[in-house]
């Protein structure tokens, strides 16, 4: 019987080794280990054996069973692996075909610039105020120390609707509005972005509508050096740490002293080139110490409070930052323009 078992084992293992499909393996399993399998038949015949022979043959039969089972498992794993390899090979695709498009929208460049500036000043404790685009003459001019007949205000430059109502020519009216809101006691620290309008004919450098960001800081003991420090942080964050800033005297009716801020030219680093018209500097914004009349008209005692204000044009900043040559680009909404600033 022992010989019989050895024979079965040898035969089975040979067949297993030769099997190429899972089906064959299954057949082999049935043929040897199944209810009617040859090994089972041997085991069934054990009853005829003597007491002494039985455990010996039983052990041998078990060994044969284990050996065949192990071999079957091993072969199964091998075949599965092979099948998987085959399947994966069949499933292979051309990765160079285009992917399913995900629609990509994006902000308008001006929004990106405005939000960048907003976030910068929010980080310094400023709040963001927005005001009406249609303003009263009082807030647009008079409250900013531009009384009627002031040479710096000209009907020709503003879009009036009536004698007292006009499209705001700057976002500066929010200076007075915010100060009034804070009733002459609370410190004011705000920026105001928004649309403004001037009576200009649209061309490459003029637009009857554009964007402005106003800033105002009013508190006790605000110094001009604070203005310089604040603007310097802004310029370096916005244009790069390597840029120098320069303040030079200027004139705005609502600030005194008034300044114009230049940054060193990115192209020539101050040596002088076409971009900066040979000066080495590029004008970026206007600013100054809030005029005492503006403070007192808005209910802040200029003997106690002082402050600074600044105003800048996001279009100009964008044009300088990206070398855009025509301000009308911001308003014609050519998709080929907008798409370039998805990621701005």
């Amino acid at each position: 019987m022992k010989e019989q078992l050895e024979q079965i084992q040898k035969e089975a293992l040979e067949k297993i080794a030769a099997a190429e499909t899972m089906n064959e393996l299954q057949e082999i399993r049935i043929a040897y280990l199944g209810k009617k399998g040859s090994l089972t038949a041997v085991l069934k015949g054990m009853g005829k054996l003597s007491k002494e022979e039985r455990p010996i043959v039983g052990e041998a039969a078990n060994n044969v069973r284990q050996s065949i089972t192990a071999s079957l498992e091993e072969k199964t794993a091998q075949l599965e692996e092979k099948m998987m390899e085959k399947q994966l090979e069949e499933e292979s695709i051309d990765v160079t075909l285009p992917g399913r498009p995900v629609r990509v929208g994006g902000p308008h460049l001006l929004t990106s610039i405005v939000e960048e500036i907003e976030d910068l000043f929010i980080g310094m404790g400023y709040e963001v105020k927005e005001g009406p685009e249609v303003e009263t003459d009082y807030f647009n001019f008079e409250a900013l120390n531009l009384p009627k007949n002031h040479p710096a205000r000209d009907m020709q430059d503003s879009f009036y609707i009536t004698n007292e109502i006009l499209l705001r020519t700057h976002t500066s009216p929010m200076q007075a509005r915010t100060m009034l809101e804070y009733k002459g006691v609370k410190p004011v620290k705000m920026i105001c972005p928004g649309k403004v309008y001037r009576r200009d004919t649209d061309d490459a450098t003029h637009s009857h509508q554009f964007t402005q960001i106003e800033g105002l800081y009013v508190d006790k003991n605000v110094r001009m050096s604070d203005l310089k420090g604040t603007l310097s942080i802004f310029a370096k964050k916005m244009f790069g740490e390597d840029r120098e800033i320069r303040l030079r005297p200027s004139y705005f009716p609502f600030t005194e002293p008034s300044v114009e801020m230049d940054i060193s030219c990115k192209v020539c680093h101050g040596k002088g080139c076409n971009v900066c018209k040979g000066t080495g500097w590029i004008e970026i914004l206007g600013a100054g110490m809030v005029h005492p009349k503006v403070l007192s008209m808005a209910g802040y005692d200029p003997e106690v409070y002082s402050g600074f204000a600044f105003g800048m044009g996001p279009e100009r900043i964008a044009m300088l930052k990206y070398g855009i040559d025509d301000i009308r680009r911001f308003y014609t909404n050519d998709i080929r323009f907008l798409k370039q600033f998805h990621h701005a």
């Binding site: 990509v104 929208g105 994006g106 649309k195 309008y197 308003y331 909404n333 998709i335």
Partner: peptide, 12 residues
């Protein structure tokens, strides 16, 4: 995010 592009047009 769903694929629209922001524009700026004139108010007038």
């Amino acid at each position: 995010g769903i694929g629209l592009m922001e524009t700026r047009t004139y108010s007038l």
